[in-house]
Amino acid sequence: MQTLTMIAAAAENNALGLNNDLLWHLPDDFKRFKNITSGHKIIMGRKTFESFPKPLPNRHHIIITRDKNYAVTYDHCTVVHSLEEALQLVKEEALAFIIGGGEIYHLALKHATNIELTRVHASFEADAHFPEINTSEWKLLAEEYHPKDDRHQYDFSYLTYERV
């Protein structure tokens, strides 16, 4: 059975980002994201891919774009033109990740089996949002709270959901 996990950090109002940039800096969340996704295929939209200075190490990037001429010259990167194409590329994987952005999360929600959500305990103005989690379809399996500190400007919680 394949696990397709959406992984994101979203504010209380589901804000993800503004102008293709993150709204906060949470080093522990970056470390957790790296640990969870390393060694796996990660599916993302073109804008999310372009927000990275370079591809993330030790992960195969599957980039979704409507632009038929879009090309990436990096190794370990594949360009596709629909979520369905991306899902075909991970169907044999035991575990794969959807890493954003907002439009991709909304499209992928119906396909996901799990969600790893870092809930940032604040609200922000944003142009990209995580979909609402319907608690009749998703069961909260784990919750771990982290208060703000000298390295983290906001309180946040790691939430692990599984489709019911």
Rank of each mutant, 00 (worst) to 15 (best):
C77T: 13
A9E: 08
Y158R: 12
F124V: 09
P53I: 08
E132K: 11
H146V: 09
V120S: 09
H81V: 10
A94C: 02
L109V: 00
I62A: 01
K54R: 09
T160I: 13
Y74N: 15
W24N: 05
V80C: 12
S82M: 06
D150G: 05
D149Y: 02
H146M: 10
T118S: 11
T73Y: 13
P147I: 11
E84C: 05
P55Y: 01
L89Y: 12
S136C: 10
S123N: 11
L56V: 03
R163Q: 07
D127V: 03
T5K: 15
K41D: 07
A126C: 12
E162K: 13
P27A: 01
R32W: 14
A10V: 07
Y145W: 09
A94G: 12
Y74W: 13
S157G: 03
T3P: 03
E103D: 12
L117E: 04
V120E: 09
D67E: 13
G17S: 07
E92F: 00
R32A: 08
F130S: 11
V79M: 05
T5I: 13
H152D: 06
A128T: 15
R59P: 09
K41A: 12
I36E: 12
L89M: 13
P55W: 04
F52Q: 13
L83N: 09
A142K: 14
V164D: 04
L56E: 03
E144H: 14
I104T: 11
A94F: 00
I133A: 10
V90W: 03
F33V: 00
P53S: 06
V90Q: 05
D75M: 06
L22A: 02
H121Y: 12
A9T: 06
V120K: 01
D149M: 05
T3H: 14
M6K: 07
G101A: 05
G17D: 06
I36A: 02
R119M: 14
H106W: 04
Y105A: 00
L95P: 02
V80G: 11
S38A: 14
W138Q: 10
A108G: 02
R119D: 04
V80A: 10
R32D: 10
P147M: 01
D155S: 10
S38F: 01
F33Q: 00
L95I: 06
A112D: 02
Y161T: 01
D127G: 01
Y154N: 13
D28Y: 04
T37R: 04
I62G: 04
Y145F: 15
L4M: 03
A96S: 15
A108D: 08
L95H: 11
N58K: 02
E162T: 14
N134V: 07
A126Y: 10
T5A: 15
H76P: 11
K31T: 12
S123V: 14
A142M: 05
E144I: 12
L26S: 01
E162G: 10
E50M: 07
H146A: 02
K139E: 15
K139F: 07
G39W: 00
D28I: 03
P55F: 08
A10G: 11
F33N: 00
T73W: 05
D75T: 14
